[in-house]
Design a binder for these strands. Structure first.
Length: 116
DNA sequence: AGCATGACGAACA
DNA sequence: GTGTTCGCCATGC
């Protein structure tokens, strides 16, 4: 289904997608980190909302975005529940109990990585 | 306008 | 470390 988006939201979505596409393979980040990078510090939920809409775009690695705990909260939103975990495992990211192992180590923060 | 919900996060007990 | 509560902002009823 196509959602009607205001200009403001379209811009926000675009920024979110742009950042998500920059996440290196084998790395992960959080909704809050993206939100913070975009300036909408408290807009983590909006990022999650954007990911839900991003679901239709093939080039947005939404599986690399997890919540602050490294938990795969969005796995249920993929075509199949195991899809998110499977995609992460392909990138050598270990998953256990719906959670990314060594999350802190694999964490990719746009504020730090894209700093300059 | 009010109320409930959500791929979240931080503060607090 | 776990469970609860509140803030956040957009959407839907």
């Amino acid at each position: 289904m196509i959602q009607k988006l205001s200009e403001k939201n379209k811009d926000f979505f675009d920024q979110v997608y742009d950042v998500v596409r920059l996440i290196p393979q084998g790395r992960v980040t959080s909704y809050g980190a993206i939100a913070n990078y975009l300036g909408t510090k408290s807009g983590a939920r909006m990022v999650g909302w954007a990911m839900n809409a991003a679901h239709v775009l093939p080039d947005v690695p939404a599986h690399r975005v997890v919540n602050r705990n490294g938990m795969l909260t969005g796995k249920m939103h993929f075509a199949h529940e195991n899809e998110m975990e499977r995609l992460l495992k392909v990138e050598n990211i270990a998953i256990e109990n719906d959670q990314v192992l060594n999350f802190k180590l694999l964490f990719w923060d746009p504020i730090i990585e894209l700093e300059l």
